[in-house]
Design a protein around this nucleic acid. Sequence first.
DNA 1: GCCAACGTTGGC
DNA 2: GCCAACGTTGGC
Length: 145
Amino acid sequence: MAYWLFKSEPFKWSWDDQKEAGEEGTQWTGIRNYQARNFMRDMKVGDKGFFYHSNKGLEVVGIVEVSAESAQDETTDDERWDCVDLRAVCDMPKSVTLKDVKANEKLEDMALVTSFRLSVQPVKEDEWIEVCRMGGLNGKTLKPL
DNA sequence: GCCAACGTTGGC
DNA sequence: GCCAACGTTGGC
């Protein structure tokens, strides 16, 4: 299983919107960047990801799961763009801010810091565990600590 | 709202 | 295939 991070501007698509999309989840539309798209093509159903609020908030607020593999982005006819479906899994008991991430030397190589413009990013397992721990979650079981 | 970083486009 | 111009992202 792989781990990822998804950025969204909360005034466009917030964590609350994602939760309202329910168990089925919904397409993670609007990605128009080849690198980000290629990461989505690598995703498998069941992969976990952080839901990050960019622009406003600047924090990881929840955990999502890939609920469908990459398929045509329904918001465009352009066949170059496809995306996965995501569903909300749980809240971060305590949201983890970009500031917190930058202040943690274990996370200095995290793509969130090094490739900050990339809107869909891979997360290494140790980074996953660490960010979960900072947010009050066990990264393996996704239960509160 | 500014601007740095960086991806994309298009002329040559 | 280079590179300048341009557009977008996202932190500050």
